[in-house]
Structure formats: C-alpha cells, structure tokens
Design a protein around this nucleic acid. Sequence first.
DNA 1: AAATTATGTGCAATCGTTTGCGCATAACAT
DNA 2: ATGTTATGCGCAAACGATTGCACATAATTT
Lengths: 335, 335
Amino acid sequence: MTMKDIARQLGVSVATVSRALSDSPSISRERREAIQAYAREHNYMPNAIAEQLRHSRNSPVKVIGVIVPEFVHYYFASVLTGIEDEATARGYRIVVARSAESYDRERDICARFMQSKVCGVIVSQAKDTVQYDHFERLQATGVPLVFYDRICPALNASRVVVDDYMGTLKAVSYLIERGCRRIAYYGTDMNMEIAKNRYNGYKDALYKNGLSLDETLVQVCDNRADAERITPRMMRMAERPDGFFAVNDDTALGILNSVQRLHFVVPDEVQICGFTNDWRATSCEPMLTTVEQRGMEVGRQAVDVLIGLVEGSLPADHAEKRVVKTNLIVRGTTR
Amino acid sequence: MTMKDIARQLGVSVATVSRALSDSPSISRERREAIQAYAREHNYMPNAIAEQLRHSRNSPVKVIGVIVPEFVHYYFASVLTGIEDEATARGYRIVVARSAESYDRERDICARFMQSKVCGVIVSQAKDTVQYDHFERLQATGVPLVFYDRICPALNASRVVVDDYMGTLKAVSYLIERGCRRIAYYGTDMNMEIAKNRYNGYKDALYKNGLSLDETLVQVCDNRADAERITPRMMRMAERPDGFFAVNDDTALGILNSVQRLHFVVPDEVQICGFTNDWRATSCEPMLTTVEQRGMEVGRQAVDVLIGLVEGSLPADHAEKRVVKTNLIVRGTTR
DNA sequence: AAATTATGTGCAATCGTTTGCGCATAACAT
DNA sequence: ATGTTATGCGCAAACGATTGCACATAATTT
C-alpha cells in the first residue's frame, strides 16, 4: 500500500493523495474524504524510510542512537529505560546497540549510526576505549553527542553524570558518623573521570572528619570476584578496616560475603556501603546501604540535552554538563 | 558527502561513482581507483536510508524490531543481549522498544515498526495484552513474528521458549529428593502459557514421587512484595510447607526473607527454589537454588528463527517452535 | 462580454542510491 | 572498407514521499 496504489485506484495523482492525507485545504472536500476513507480502509501507512529520505536535507531524522556497554547491569538498564521513556514521549525513536565494553564494537556502532543518519548519539564509553577518533568523527560530521556516566573528558561534549563526589562524600561521612575509623575504598583505576570524583569524595570525607588517608586501605577493585580475593587479606591486617566503601553494589556484595565468611558481624563489627542501589541491595542480609544512582533520571536528562542540541534550543557546539543528585539509602542497621 | 558530490568533483556521473565504489569491472581501473581514493579521503559513507529505500522493493531492510516488557529485569536484559549479539553477527541491526507491560504502548510500537519497515519483529508480550489485533496486523502485512518467553498461543506464530515444564519438574523433584514433602507453588495466574507449563511440571513432579497435590499450597504470587505478605500465613498453617517453588527469583527472595524473619533456618527447615538465575541468586544467604533460564540462548535462537523466516530458508507462514533447555543450579546446601 | 480571481489538480523535481539499457569509441576479424 | 565485438561510461527510471509551480475550469468582478 503506497500512495501510488491509492492514486491509481482512485484515478488521481500521487500529489493529490499526499495533499489529501495531510488535510491540505487545496483539495476539494469530497475527494479528500474519499481518499482518506480509502486509505483508512486499506490501512495505508506512510513509509517512514521514504519520509526520512525526503526530509533528511532540512530537518534531521528523529532517531537517537544509544550505546550501552551492557544490558544486564541494573544501572545501564535503568538509564536505557529513562532514555526510551523520554525519547518516546518527545516523538523520537531510539536504536540501541551494545558495545560489550569493546572499543572495536563501539567504533563499528558509531559508523553504522552515521550511515543511518541518526540525529544524535547518547553513549557511555566502553572500558576498553582509550582513543576517541570514532567520537571525534561523529562530532566533525555535526552529530550531537551526549555522554552519560562514563564520560570522555578529552572531548568537548555534553555530559550527564551523577553527583559522584557528593554521593561518595555523604556515604563515607555516614560510615564515619556510625563509628567507622578505618574505612577501606574499593574503586576502579583512576582513568575514568567518574573514578577520580568518587575517590576525591572519599578523601574529603576523611579529611573533613579529621581522619587521615591510609593508602593501604585503597584498592583497585570493582567487581565481586576481586573483592572476594582481596577482602580476606584486608581483614587480616594488623589494623583491620571497620568500614568499606565500594564503587558499585557488586563489589560491595563481594565484601559482604567475604567478611561474613570470616564470621564478622555486619553491621556491628564491619559496615559496608555500595553505589548504585541495584536489585541486589535489598536481597542480601543485612540489606545494603548504598548510594542511589538514579539511572532513569540520567537517561531522561541525556535525551533532554540531546534534543536541545538537535532542535537548536542549545547551540550546536555547546557542551552542556548536567549533574543528577544522588541519595544515600541507609539500610540494614537493625534486623 | 554524497555520490553526487564525488561525481561533480571528478567530472563523472553518479552511476559511474556507484559502480566504481562497488568494484564493478565495467569501470576502468584508473577511474575506479581514483574514485575510491577520493571517497576514502573525504570519508564518504553511503546513506543507509537511501539504500534502504532503493532496496525495499526486492530485499527487505535488515532491521529487526524488538519489543521487551522491561529493561531492568535480568532475564529480559539477557535475552536482549543474545538478540543483539546474534543480529549483529549476522549483519542485522535492531531497534528496541519497551512496552512497559502496557498493551497501548505495545500497539503503538507495532505501528511504528510497520512504518519503518522492519524486516521482522521479536516480542515478549506485555502482561496487559489480551487482544492481538496489533500482532495480527503485522502478520497480515507479511512481517514475520517471533515470540519469546511470553508467547501468544492464540496466534500461529513462531516462538522460542525455555523448557518450563522440565525445568520445574526437575526443580520440584530435587526438593523432594532433598526431603521436602509439602512443597508450596507460587506462580502467576494461568493465563499465560508459560504459567500452565510450570504448574504442570510441579504437579507431575509430585505425582511421580507419590505425593498428592494440596491446593492450599498453590498460590498466585509472582513478586517479592506479595510473597512477603503471603508467606507468613503459609508458615503458620497447621501443616506448614517444608519447601517452596517460585516462578521467579524475585518471588523466591521474598519467600526467603519472610521465612528467615520468622526464624526458620534455610535450608534445614525450609528449602526454596526459584526460576531465572538472576544476579540476586548469588547475593542472598544462603544462595538460591534456581532454574537457569538462559536468556542469551533464547535471544540468539529467536534471531535465528526470524532470519530464517526473512531470508526464506523457512517458509513464511511456518510457525517454528523452539525450546531451550534449562538447568537446575543447586546452591546453598551448605555454608 | 471581457478581465480577474478562486478553486482544484497535475507535473516534475527532490532526497541518495542502484541498475537496465543504450551509446559512443576503439579494437579486432573479414 | 565494412561488420562484429569488447570496453567504458552516461541517461534515466525506480524506491515513496513532499511541494513549488503551472494550468485548467469555474465563479466572481468590472
């Protein structure tokens, strides 16, 4: 069913069909209604591809490319939910691809996005990614780029992040307030911007509360398996930690599991705080205190920024930086 | 950068450019190489939209529409991962939309998919969905449809499901083997096909082991909150259950939490088995015995079936039914 | 009755590609 | 010198939609 089919059947030109379907007043009422009726009955639907091609010169195609490192992580899934929600509400569609934390895939995805003429790209970098030629190429072509969470500091691009610094600062301050004096920090290596901010929040929380930084308590560790390897060593130190802050809940759960295996009582002897607030935070015993990362809100904001860039309410070369507030969710203080 | 630009610069026709770029032998070597060099230097990329429009008559567009009820559930996220993986590997792209368990959104999504001429649709029904006009419309238009997990039995469509019956049967048999005699069943209402199969697996496991079915042990309950409401009542029964089977891990965790709150010891006094094997199954104490649902494999198979339908290796009206095997993952028998 | 103005349609170009066909020019055989 | 074949390239139509412009015909004004 194309306009041509309708035109042929009704003995008019496709131009007339086009105008009739868009309620143009320059078509007589009878014809217009006849055409509309025919179209409805044979449930005609405009071919989106043709429309896109036609409009691609003036107005950009309302499709947003989204790159996500993995689907199966709660945080990314919730960001995706926020993106989908906001985009749909504002009349955009999304095409989603997964980098699987690989630079090569990320690169391919960007190329495909350029070819399919997405109006903009929302992305959280793969862990692998240390060169940015693919992102730069997008920018050079004039495709607006919005990073979320794992931003690319080397690029002058828009970004939506959570308040890593304050989130961590509040969390660590809370541990101190609850009596911890030797708080361990488990984080990713300091390459990613996000890592530095959280680490600074940790340090400042210590300083503000008159505690000093002990390098032996700072570990590069961002997953459960590593946490379960490292934690027993930590707990056997002469002066063992009495509190742990981890940059994500997976790691925090590894710590929890390890210390419980060593028969320490949480939270009486050891207190633990994570980051994200994923499903697991309420399924362990005791439940996990954690910093809520509000992925949905991050996703929504990212779309808002992108559409601003696309529709020109933000200047094209402007790099908007938005910060989404975090909340500390306190749990498991009593059974 | 379009072919026209290249053609103008090099003083040839676009047809020549097109042929040169596709390595047609009908273009002289020098011209071909000159054109290719020029294209490479100015990094020309073919406009995918135009290509799609051109090819839409003969060969269908290599884009698969995917509908997922929610992103933030482990199982759906893993199916999505499998879909993305297989589709990408076979040269297809995916456009993903989330129904948010709503029929209205599902309907809109299908309409958009039709307009954007996806070559096929992979979908797991929203819980809301009780009429199928939108799916029928897709079928009528000749768009292949593959259901996963939550299939639509009323439609003669392809489907990929896990082995719900055997998975449940093995799980319940295992509970019996471990000494349980009064096993409660928490499942969704019997509307969905998947619910019936699991329930049958439960019943048959009882019968095969000489146990009788006690209706009071069968509950409509498929989420944590409900499980935490219902379970205390169950445990106060004169003859309380000594085992629980739940149709998903969320529910199983609700049961676990409830019985532990009542100071029953798991697994000594009560044994629990879930379904899915999501992240949480290893973050509770004791860890959860559960049926592994293998979402990635389901996703891959769904794509395989769909591409078969699209490319004609399967007859278009054929309804392929695939079953992915489940595994019982035993955990938490000892600390 | 002639000139003007509405009113309703169709023609054709356009978006960026692909591709069947035809037209040159050159090389070969007769 | 004429006919045949090969080689290299361009024209134009097609995919499905939109839209400025021209052109009818009818209704109005002068």
